[in-house]
Design a protein around this nucleic acid. Structure first.
Lengths: 209, 209
DNA sequence: CGTCGAATCTAGTCATTGACAAGTTTGTGG
DNA sequence: CCACAAACTTGTCAATGACTAGATTCGACG
C-alpha cells in the first residue's frame, strides 16, 4: 500500500550487515510472532512480508526462505491454529463446553482464527495444514458424538453442523466487532454460554454434596 | 500481485481513445458488477482496481472518480449488501424463516456478504453504510422480537445473538467451502432449516385440510 | 445557439509490494 | 580443512493504489 498515512511507527535502525550476526537465530519464530500481531490488528489482507522483515531486522527477502511466499506463511499459521484448536477441544467436557472453548480459542488466537477457515488465503495441498485440520475436525466430531444433550440425539450430523455454526458465527461476529453493542462489557464467553442454554437444555447439575 | 501465474484471461483490446466514447455511460455500475464477480471468485483481498478498470475498458484511474479508492468501493458494496439483506429479511414470516433468508442472501450475494461484516475493509464513517447497516440491524431485531418460538421468550437479546450467530456461522462456513463434506449435494438451505429444527421447536404446522 | 462550469475520464508519476535470481556468509559433517 | 547445505543479502521486475494535472463531454442557463 502506497503512501501509508496510517499510524506508522518509526522503524528502528537496522545495523549494517557487518555489525549484526548474519544468522538471526530464530527468524522463523520471530516472523511468525510479528505476523500474528499484524493480523490480529489489521486482518490478513494488511499483512506485508517486507514489513515483517523490517520488524525482525532482516532483509526483505529473508522471510521467503522460511515460508516460500505469503501463502506459505498464512498456511503455516493456519496449520498451527488447527493444532491449537484441536488441543483446546480435546479437553472439553460436554458439547457446550466445547463451544465455549471454541469461542475462547478465537479470542485468544484471533490471528490464527482469522486465517484458518479461508481457503483462498491458503496453500490447499500443504501436508502440515491437511493433517492439522484433520485433527481439529476430528475433535469437533468427538465433541458432538460424545456428551451431547438428548435433544440432539436424533441426527448427530445435523447437530454437529448446528453446534459448529453457532460457535463459529458467534466467534466470527465477535472478532469482527459486530457484537460490541450487544455484548457490551460483559464477558463474551459467559454471554455465549447463556445464549446456548436458551437453545438446548443444560446438562443435569453435577452431583456434588 | 506480480507475475500472476494463475488463470489469466486475455484482456480484450481497448480501442484507442479516439475510437471510443469518452464517457462510458454507466461506469459506476459496470465497475460494481465486475467487482462483485471478482470478489465472489477470489475474495475481497484479490480485488484490483486496475483490473476492474481493464475489464470495463477504461483507464486505470477511472474507478477512483466513482469510488474514491479501494475502501470506497468496498464500502459501497457493503452498503448495497445491507440494503439487500434488509429487504430480504423484511418479508420473513417467523424467526426460522428469517434465518433461512439470511443464508439464502449469503448464497445469492456472496460478494456482498463477504464484505459487509468486515470493518477493516470499510470506511466506517460513511453515511450510506451507516444508514443501510442500521436498516438491516433493525430487521434482525424485528425478526427476533416478533414471531419466535416460546423457548426463546426468556431473553430476546440473547435469542437475537443466538439466532444471528447460528445463521451467520452457517452462511460463513458454507461460503468458505468448510461444509462441503457435510452438506454434500443437498440443498444448503434445507440442511440449515432442518438443523435449526433440532435446536428449537418448529412452529405448529399450518392448519391446512 | 452559445458558453461556461461541473462531471467524467485519460495520462503520467511515485512509493510500496511480492516474487524471483544470484551472490555472500555461516554452520556442519566428512 | 574442505565441500556443501542452510540462512541471509542485494538487486531487479511487474503490478498495484493513490495522487496530480489535463483533456473531453455533458448540461443548464442565458
Amino acid at each position: 500500500m502506497p503512501r501509508s498515512t496510517t499510524s506508522q511507527q518509526q522503524q528502528p535502525e537496522r545495523p549494517k550487515a557487518s555489525e549484526r550476526p548474519y544468522h538471526h537465530g530464530d527468524l522463523r519464530r520471530a516472523i511468525l510472532r510479528a505476523a500474528l500481531d499484524a493480523i490480529a490488528d489489521d486482518g490478513p489482507s494488511a499483512l506485508s512480508l517486507r514489513d515483517l522483515a523490517r520488524r525482525a531486522g532482516v532483509s526483505h527477502a529473508a522471510p521467503a526462505h522460511h515460508f516460500k511466499d505469503r501463502t506459505g506463511l498464512l498456511t503455516a499459521i493456519a496449520a498451527e491454529g488447527h493444532a491449537l484448536l484441536a488441543a483446546a477441544l480435546a479437553e472439553a467436557g460436554d458439547l457446550r463446553d466445547a463451544g465455549v472453548r471454541y469461542v475462547r480459542f478465537a479470542r485468544e488466537h484471533p490471528a490464527h482464527f482469522q486465517v484458518m477457515f479461508r481457503p483462498e488465503l491458503l496453500r490447499e495441498g500443504d501436508l502440515e495444514l491437511t493433517t492439522a485440520r484433520a485433527l481439529s475436525r476430528e475433535q469437533l466430531r468427538t465433541a458432538v458424538t460424545t456428551a451431547r444433550p438428548e435433544t440432539l440425539d436424533a441426527d448427530p450430523r445435523l447437530a454437529g453442523i448446528a453446534a459448529w455454526s453457532l460457535s463459529h458465527g458467534f466467534a466470527t461476529l465477535l472478532l469482527s466487532d459486530n457484537l460490541d453493542a450487544v455484548v457490551g462489557d460483559q464477558d463474551p464467553e459467559e454471554v455465549f454460554r447463556t445464549a446456548t442454554e436458551l437453545l438446548f437444555p443444560s446438562a443435569p447439575p453435577s452431583p456434588s454434596p
